[in-house]
Amino acid sequence: MYPSCHPVLLTSKNLRKQYKVCIEDVERNGKLQNRKRTIQIIAFLTPALVLVVTFVYVFLGWSGWLSLTDWKGLGGSAEFVGFKNYIKMFTNDRIFIKSLKNTLVLSGIFIGVTVPLGLLNAILLDLGLKARRLFRMIYLIPLSFSFVVSATMWLWMYAPESGAINSLLRIIGLGSLTQPWITSSSQSLLSLAIIYIWQFSGFATLVYYAGIASVPQQLLEAALVDGASTFRKYVSVVIPLQRPATITTVVLLLMYSLRVFDLVWLTTGGGPGYSSQILATYMWRVTFNRNQFAYGSAIGILMFFLSMAIIIPFLAIVRRRGEA
């Protein structure tokens, strides 16, 4: 901005005086620029900040307060009842306990299968198979579907009589293996987990594929020089370096599985009985069906703390190790 101010070019006394003036000018302008820039940053951040604070933190706080009342919505008064709603959840509501168990079991199956499957898919892609791009696309297509589309599609496929899965089993002579799928209380949760896994294994594959691609080449070459087989290369070099990818995948998938609503709502509605009722669908029923807005808020707050219990250790690990 001030090329003529370069000290090498300033030899005479007069010029040095000019240089001093020039430096003062630069400093003054720099401060002005910094102030201007700070104002610009604040101006750009403020609208987003106001929206996030209003619609996330204020309403979160409001829900937290509601959960400590007996408010029933529409025109009703709200009396402070302390932790009564939280105590009721764990002592006097077997449907809540069932929903909590279902949520945790569903998340466990979902994560337990999706993460290794994603890693396996990523390794297969990394092995340099033919038509790699095609496979990558195939893995990713389910992720592009909206959950409403996936739910409707799987509902058709799971239909015990006319559904694609049982029909296919009958056609290939394996009629004895046909299942009631989502219509059975013993299979509904597993059937839902299959939909989750189908939808999200492409995401896990993508994260792991990027993770594998970022393994330093010299480590792989060193393994090759040491005579490591392909299997050994992956087991001893590639997979141990996938810790950041694993943490990211597990946390993001867990966050989703704890708050999922649409897939369950549109396929089983939480049934048969309460066999696939999860926290999010139960919260909706309690709040909007039974008009127990305070109790529904308490369930929502509990879901928030469950998510926090996952995200905070994750952030701590990332911060400590400088990994992302």
Binding site: P272, G273, R285
Partner: peptide, 14 residues
């Protein structure tokens, strides 16, 4: 409807 829908669906299955 919601509460008995859930309860009776469980009964109807078993």
């Amino acid at each position: 409807l919601g509460a008995y829908g859930s309860m009776l669906s469980g009964f109807f299955e078993h």
